[in-house]
């Protein structure tokens, strides 16, 4: 199943399929290790719902929902 990272629920994990966007934001995501194939777990949301905190390549990364929305994720279907 494919969905964007901003739609994850807490504790959900998946593999990055594709990163959209352009320029500075996109490059920053790559540099921080959010490249296709990376394994991501959604750790928590900030008290006001945005930004979110994810675990990627062994460390904690925070990003805003609109930044997470450009990351398409491959999620294993449990059902």
């Amino acid at each position: 199943m494919v969905k964007n990272l901003d739609q994850f629920v807490i504790g959900e994990c998946g593999i990055i399929k594709n990163v959209g966007g352009e320029g500075r934001m996109r490059r920053r995501l790559f540099d921080m290790g959010a490249t296709p194939g990376a394994y991501v777990t959604l750790r928590k949301r900030a008290p006001l719902g945005d930004p979110i905190e994810i675990n990627i390549r062994g460390y904690e990364l925070t990003l805003r929902k609109n930044e997470a929305a450009i990351i398409a994720m491959e999620v294993k279907d449990n059902a």
């Binding site: 904690e60 990364l61 925070t62 990003l63 805003r64 930044e67």
Partner: peptide, 9 residues
């Protein structure tokens, strides 16, 4: 500016 930031231990 993008808010893609490490939360260090």
């Amino acid at each position: 500016a993008p808010f893609i930031m490490e939360l260090p231990a």
